[in-house]
Design a protein around this nucleic acid. Structure first.
Lengths: 210, 210
DNA sequence: GGTTTTGTAAGGTTTTTACCTGATTGACCG
DNA sequence: CGGTCAATCAGGTAAAAACCTTACAAAACC
């Protein structure tokens, strides 16, 4: 019997495309959802073998949905599908018990492979992602910490507002070197490497307005 | 003979899905691209009937690619595919000569219809979008003119993506000094003085995603 | 009570930015 | 035809950012 799949992505068109690809591979797509709530409801109702979840969904994102699904249908295993390679997302997903992490930028064959591996009880990570995880494991054992400290959030906001490190230091009454340390730690934690990425992250977090 | 299509989206998996759907409808996908540059090159080489472009692409976004494609292959008509319903995006797309504007959140049938209409010389806008356009027309909403040249917009996008000046230069096949000049002039025109401000501006303009 | 995190700070190196002046070519505009 | 502007490139300088290592006291966490 074919592997029964629940497919969740907020873009119907993308979902239809994926469905076509998956059914062509012999999988059975038993349900489709466009947000995390709907995915959870359908998982409870259908108890699919695999839930393929987009990370970026309205109402409840993929991580939240994964946690909820494991509550209502423990036999369902989750594969997330996303465009994000950042360690932060990956590690959060793994902590939520997700068994497969596949990038949308890769070939569909990776998703197919992920579904097969995960349904066999194994795990599957897109190759770039594996590096990220190994890195995080080697460097910080298992503490990904997407959570920045209050001070770090403060510094991040000022940086995203366009303040130079010198200005940040003077605004916070700390030395330039300290401000620099904060900045470095932030980049380390988020696995980001340029100001531009910090700014985009701060906007996503709602720390500053675009 | 089938309608010949060039498909551009930065996510290979999404592209494969769309390709499957389009070919099932009897269209011929003659080329695939994962960024605006590649799309432009392939359009020149293949002169497809229709170019289906994602708006959010690295290196060169859909709007830039649409303009470039009309230069190198005037017979190719552009349909953009995006998740954005905001007037800003729609109007900018229309000003770039785009004939079809389809939302990823809709059924694939809309894309199919758009391709058919546009290849017949007509236009197609997803229904929510039509409202936006009519509204904008009635209220005479216009995109604020930032007076950046096409080249400057291109450089701005790359900078906002986190590319260094050296990388920008190599991506555009120009010297580092030229890339630097563009960057300087952008800052001058916009009266901005740091990378962070450029990034926020680029996001407001829809050149990059947060 | 011991461990970890946080906030603080300093040393140094290399790369990148921001700003300056100046110049050439080609295209478009009136 | 002359003027403006876009796009190209060069040289130089000073500031800033990015990366590295190291350190220590206080707060927070088990």
């Amino acid at each position: 019997m074919p592997i029964r799949i629940l497919l969740a992505d907020d873009h119907q068109m993308v979902r239809q495309g994926l469905k076509a690809l998956l059914e062509h591979e012999g999988f059975k797509v038993v349900g489709e959802a466009s947000d995390g709530h709907q995915a959870t409801r359908l998982a409870q109702e259908l108890t699919p073998d695999i839930a393929v979840l987009d990370l970026a969904m309205p109402l409840m994102n993929g991580i939240g949905a994964a946690k909820a699904i494991s509550q209502v249908s423990s036999s369902t295993k989750v594969v997330v599908l996303t465009m994000h390679t950042e360690a932060q997302y990956v590690l959060e997903a793994l902590r939520a018990g997700i068994r497969g992490y596949v990038l949308k930028s890769r070939a569909a064959a990776e998703l197919v492979q992920a579904i097969r591996e995960v349904s066999r009880g194994s795990t599957f990570l897109s190759s770039d992602i594996s590096d990220t995880v190994v890195d995080a494991y080697l460097n910080k054992v298992d503490i990904p910490n997407d959570s920045l400290s209050p001070r770090e959030l403060q510094v991040l906001q000022l940086v995203a507002e366009g303040k130079t490190t010198k200005e940040v230091a003077s605004l916070l009454n700390i030395s330039v070197k300290t401000a620099e340390s904060h900045r470095t730690r932030i980049m380390e934690k988020l696995d980001l490497h340029e100001t531009a990425s910090l700014v985009r992250y701060a906007i996503r977090r709602g720390l500053v307005q675009p």
